[in-house]
Design a protein around this nucleic acid. Structure first.
Lengths: 263, 263
DNA sequence: TAGTGGTCTAGACCACCTC
DNA sequence: AGGTGGTCTAGACCACTAA
């Protein structure tokens, strides 16, 4: 472990880069390169502090960062250990359509199919927890990337005459913004349900694809702070152009924007 | 704000519950109940410290917890503010089949369809980055809950004669455990891709469902620490029995196991 | 200039684990 | 008993922000 000590002594206390950050990166790098293997233990906090010539609290802060990244796991009275990698807990991230497409260098756009005041049918009434036939604002639209239709969305919110729909509001067609500008309520929680579905004839025409092809169905329900549903939406994502990817285990350090250079 | 002060003075320094934890919960509760609104600022760290009669470092630790939960956002030289809620970034979690079913009170089981040594076809060769016709271990199995088939899986790993397949290894059919017991390599990274698909005739029979019905397709590729693919699997999850749910914005505090009682 | 959050120190006491 | 991590203190200096 003399090897580790050498690394630890590289820490510069006069650098503009915080000491805890330098230390965290040194340890992270050793773990990712496999020089510190799963199950191995770190030197004790006091040991690291005295080697580096820094305070124990600073060491603890560095370790805390790696605990957050699930690279280390401290055990009271025993020591701090490199974690065994875990593959059971997978996280799929799902980003805002507009941002995601821009990030990919594609030009996102939205096209209104229609906006109507309708009477809530059984499904809508149940989702929004309102009586059947309550006046409801219905918005249907297509999201496209570089002109290719990719998503078909239907959104429903309870209609109030006081706040009529303004054309400009429909430019950002996200359910939270619709709800907060049309109703006086602020959404605080959003529940999304991801399912699979088969595209029907109507959707196939709108999305310019074949009926009976598979697609993602993403339901979104917004709640206010009293946990009352205030908006419901369903989105159909074309299955041939949408995938969700996730990395587990010793993930490649994309979290918290940490750029690491390997030797 | 005298209201907040009263809450802050409830902190007991002699309690077995850590002071930073008590403070974090008090602040979290106020935010979740809407008594501290998005955009509002907290009293300064020094102020809170003197009100509670504790050290500033302890206050900082409590605040750090809420920053992690994205409830607070400190700004250098200005103050610490309650964050505006964000709905754009959705996270779908996907748990291990066995654990998830047990958690739901269902009895998970796995049934081998077959285990074979095959020659890698074009698809497998590409996924595992090996030459076509390389000997490959192929495992096909069904995962069931309370006897109802829910998932069909195919797994492929490069075959080595030294470590033959042992019956008992197939009891835990997870790709990481197969790979690490059959090969000498330890998987360090796992990449999963979630897509939609349509069930074909063969899969329909195995899953006891109708062909052409929609399903989730989850591909998993395992890599060792040199980033070489060492295992590939695809799983078909019945669309009628699988959903992914996610909560955003002011989520209901399920993270880090924090149980909060509201008044 | 006064106030804020960001970093860091050099101690302290505790509960827990191992020997 | 001695070592470990968990908590906490009472200071300190800094960079940043606002009046």
């Amino acid at each position: 472990m003399a090897d580790l000590e050498k690394d630890l002594k590289k820490i510069s206390k006069s650098s503009v880069i915080p000491v805890y950050y330098q230390l965290a990166r040194i340890l992270e790098k050793r773990i990712r390169l496999g020089k510190l293997k799963p199950g191995e233990s770190l030197p004790s906090e006091n040991k690291i502090a005295s080697i580096c010539g820094i305070s124990r609290m600073t060491v603890r802060r560095a370790i805390a960062e790696l605990v957050d990244l699930r690279l280390l796991s401290p055990q009271k009275g025993k020591g701090t250990f490199v974690t065994e990698h875990e593959f059971a807990h997978t996280v799929f991230e799902f980003y805002d359509f507009f941002k995601e497409m821009r990030r990919k260098g594609k030009e996102p756009s939205s096209k209104l199919v229609n906006v109507r005041i309708i009477k809530a049918d059984k499904t809508i009434a149940k989702k929004l927890d309102i009586p059947i036939d309550t006046k409801t604002l219905s918005i249907k639209l297509i999201l496209a990337a570089d002109g290719y239709p990719m998503v078909y969305e239907e959104k429903y919110i309870v209609y109030t005459k006081q706040n009529p729909i303004i054309e400009s509001e429909l430019r950002d067609p996200s359910l939270p913004s619709l709800v907060s500008s049309h109703l006086h309520k602020l959404p605080v929680t959003s529940r999304r349900i991801l399912q699979v579905t088969i595209i029907n004839e109507e959707e196939a025409i709108l999305l310019n694809t074949k009926p009976h092809s598979p697609a993602f169905l993403v339901e979104q329900i917004l709640y206010d702070k009293d946990n009352t549903p205030i908006g419901w939406g369903k989105s159909i994502y074309r299955g041939d152009s949408y995938k969700l990817v996730s990395y587990d285990g010793l993930n490649p350090g994309r979290e918290k924007g940490g750029i690491i250079d390997y030797e």
